[in-house]
Design a protein around this nucleic acid. Structure first.
Lengths: 341, 341
DNA sequence: ATGAAAGCGCTAACAA
DNA sequence: TTGTTAGCGCTTTCAT
């Protein structure tokens, strides 16, 4: 069939060829200018730059990736977009990846899994140069990852997983201790803990238990087999109150669980912090809401992100460097939920 | 120079060539199998499939994008990762884009802007076939977007922007009315509104004002020049209370602002909902927290996402189809913050 | 139903 | 300092 002449002059995007022609140079020179090569004469560089501008040229990542076998991009796998702790992590990551010329693309583990896709595969198909895991993924997802992986924010992966990955995380055990000792320092002794499944929760729980034992007190944990949402926090708090109606303080495995606990306490007519003090974990935006004003452990997610990025860059330069494993020390943010007069 | 033999057997990923060789067919056939072409004999198809499996082959998106000039990917630009309304939107988008074989990649406008990058450029460089804007972006970012754009969730762009974009959004004006009429139906008459900058807030405000006028009441709006965060909500609520200490209900431009208002009301010793009823907007996860239990307008973000995706697919098939502009009707979710008795 | 061959837009030696 | 020249891995006519 005869092709109809296109109605609009085919808006095919300009290539280096077009730029080169317009600037009166070769494509290689254009490529050099784009990559900021050092030995290009000012005149030619300027010519190329204006040609780029006039044509509205944008380099094709696909072509560049194909030719160079690298994308200068890193894939970041977030645990769950609904838990906004990742925003700070991302900010930290970008603060070092951006200046280094890397692009970051993010995906949400929950969402991907819900679609029946393997998010790691997705990044690999996109030729991400490296992966950041801000999640505790199923080990099976990680077989044959050819790219360097940094686990950020989660202290440990399941047994046998990814021995080669670098890890940059908050010291959750220390954080659990910190929260508990704060409460002990306030004179509270009947301190319960709301926990959940998964590595981070387990470490936080361990910290709580350690602090309790060292104070000669018996730990009391609920919810350890459940999830870590607001609803789970609510349920775990009810369980705690049922088992020990006289609790005087609660350490939650994260901020949203702490909010769930607030609801349970209100239902039982217990005043916070007067009768029961509450500490969360994550220092999420939630904890700072005036209406909640939650004391919380700050894992310093932004710094974790920055450090993870640095680790990544190092690993990219030197694939055989020894495995890195950094634990950042958390700090405590004291707010109204533990402030007694 | 003589190439040193690589220390590790170069772990170069397999290509269609490798697959073809192993399966004893041509590269073209492999490509056909990958694309699910109809006229391939079962035997060869099987051979190719097992070769793929044995080799752990993953197609290179870069090569495919370059050769086919399409990526089957759409870029989604989120307003702000901190406001989790986008999660439902994304879920809706993916519910139709996934089955259609499209990949979605997301970026956060705030984060990108903070890095001094143009997020739209980023998507374009990645060869996204189309863009979804779940934000109200600066018009200047959108010059020369060669790809179809669908604006999702935000009703209107600034003047003169992107006349060619399709729009799928919630009817925010209707939502504002809905919230206000609900309060009026409860017998409240001294209803104030907390507003903020930007299109969505403006529409919601208009709905509130309309409902008030139709009820013969004088609207009272604060915060219209400010932001839309929890802090802004707190400040706007204080301003409202200063101007009209006897308010009996508050409509907030979104859920986080409503939470800010709760704090202000508590500070003033006003009981919710007994003395002051509060309505939010977005039906975000926040509103469902038991401790907050906020009546809120549900824009039906998931459906907006699905509809936006359908619109996108249509546009991709037919670039010259007439511009689409759909407004979904919001509904009200009634919770404790307006439940009297 | 299957194969051959010509690119897609760019990078990276190498040559000049 | 700049130009030439091969590909990178895949898609896509066009033959067969």
């Amino acid at each position: 069939m005869a092709a109809n002449p296109p109605v609009h002059p085919t808006p095919t995007r300009p290539t280096i060829y077009d730029v080169a022609e317009r600037a009166g140079v070769s494509k290689s020179l254009v490529s050099l200018v784009l990559r900021g090569a050092p030995h290009v004469s000012a005149g030619r560089r300027q010519a190329v730059l204006s040609a780029i501008d006039e044509l509205g040229y944008r380099p094709s990542r696909a072509a560049s990736a194909l030719a160079s076998q690298r994308t200068r991009s890193v894939g970041v796998l977030i645990d769950d977009f609904r838990n906004p702790w990742f925003v700070e992590l991302l900010t930290g990551l970008r603060s070092v990846l951006d200046p280094a010329g890397y692009t970051v693309s993010v995906a949400d583990f929950q969402l991907e899994a819900a679609s029946g896709r393997n998010p790691v595969d997705g990044f690999l198909a996109q030729h991400a140069d490296a992966l950041v895991l801000a999640a505790e993924p199923d080990p099976s997802l990680l077989r044959d990852v050819g790219a360097p992986v940094v686990v950020a924010g989660v202290r440990e992966l399941g047994p046998g997983t990814l021995p080669a990955a670098d890890v940059v995380a908050g010291d959750d055990e220390c954080g659990g201790e910190l929260a508990t000792r704060h409460l002990l320092g306030l004179g509270r002794e009947r301190i319960g803990h709301l926990s959940g499944r998964g590595g981070p929760a387990a470490h936080r729980r361990r910290g709580y238990e350690k602090a309790m034992r060292e104070a000669g007190l018996a730990p009391l944990v609920t919810g350890a087999a459940g999830g870590t949402t607001e609803q789970d926090g609510y349920a775990a708090a009810l369980a705690l109150l049922a088992e020990r109606p006289d609790v005087s303080a609660i350490v939650a495995a994260n901020d949203v669980m702490a909010v769930g606990a607030l609801a349970a306490l209100r239902e039982r007519g217990l005043a916070v912090p007067a009768e029961v003090a509450v500490v969360g974990y994550d220092n999420s935006p939630l904890a700072a809401y005036r209406y909640l004003d939650l004391t919380t452990v700050d894992p310093r997610s932004r710094e974790i992100g920055a450090e993870a990025a640095r680790t990544l860059l190092t690993r990219l330069e030197n694939p055989d460097a020894p495995r890195r494993r950094a634990l950042l020390e958390p700090s405590l943010v004291i707010r109204a939920s533990t402030r007694t007069a």
